[in-house]
């Protein structure tokens, strides 16, 4: 039952498994994961490399489908069973509802910062302008720079601007600070927290860095493809106060 303290779940994950065939070996990336993520929540999926956290995020983001189990998405305008959706449905789901931030930014090298954001706003339904998005991450003065002319932290903030510019329902971040030093990483996390608070975007960050966990509403720990612990933080620590 959704209440003010416990809002409705955006994702309902029921007993999903994911098995990859790697040559002759079957890899069990997820072994029966169940989870709910709630509207406006900032969650951190914590786990070591190989724990299945990226696989889970990919399934939530509609990049992959589970081998077994069900993933229900309940957004403002769309309800979708991600485990049964077609390729076209998944593409549209990513296109209109999900914002992604990647470890290695994945910016288009031939486009400027503003254009990298415009790539997404051009195909979105009710986007902000590229300069608005870049202003939100503090890059209003770097609009016409190409990725090669930006630092790693700046590039990641462009990626965040690109992810939020479409006003997505969920923001999924895969090791957003993984390629950055801690000082730059904190700036990036500040931007993510700000978006989550100001826009109320449901945000999920995966990381192997336990130091980040205290900025989240909830911390979900994965080991060997299973959730071993879900911890509710009573209060979130400001990103600038984090350290690792």
């Amino acid at each position: 039952m959704p209440t003010a303290a416990n809002p409705s779940p955006v994702f309902q994950v029921n007993q999903i498994t994911k098995t990859y065939q790697m040559g002759e070996v079957a890899v069990h990336a997820l072994r029966g994961v169940s989870l709910e993520l709630f509207q406006g929540e900032l969650s951190v999926l914590l786990g070591a490399s190989g724990s299945g956290k990226s696989t889970l995020l990919n399934i939530l983001g509609g990049l992959d489908t589970p081998t077994q189990g069900q993933v229900l998405y309940q957004g403002k305008e769309l309800s979708l069973d991600l485990s049964l959706a077609t390729e076209t449905e998944l593409t549209d789901y990513r296109r209109f509802h999900v914002g992604f931030v990647f470890q290695f930014y994945n910016l288009i090298p031939s486009l400027t910062a503003a254009e990298n954001v415009a790539v997404v706003t051009e195909i979105a339904k009710a986007p902000m302008t590229p300069s608005e998005a870049l202003e939100l991450v503090g890059l209003e003065n770097r609009l016409n720079h190409f990725p090669a002319q930006l630092s790693g932290g700046e590039q990641q903030r462009v990626a965040i601007a690109r992810a939020i510019a479409k006003n997505p329902d969920v923001l999924l971040c895969d090791e957003p600070t993984g390629a950055l030093d801690s000082k730059t990483g904190i700036k990036v996390l500040e931007a993510l927290a700000k978006i989550n608070q100001e826009l109320g975007t449901t945000t999920s960050i995966i990381t192997h860095n336990a130091g980040i966990a205290s900025m989240a509403d909830r911390v979900i720990k994965l080991i060997d493809g299973q959730i071993v612990d879900i911890q509710q933080n009573d209060s979130r620590i400001q990103a600038q106060d984090l350290s690792w």
């Binding site: 990049l63 296109r95 999900v98 992604f100 994945n106 288009i108 790539v119």
Partner: peptide, 16 residues
């Protein structure tokens, strides 16, 4: 291939 796959992640259709 990297940027094209990234665009697919961002919700670009195969035709786009």
């Amino acid at each position: 291939h990297r940027e094209l796959a990234s665009l697919r992640v961002l919700g670009f259709r195969r035709s786009e």
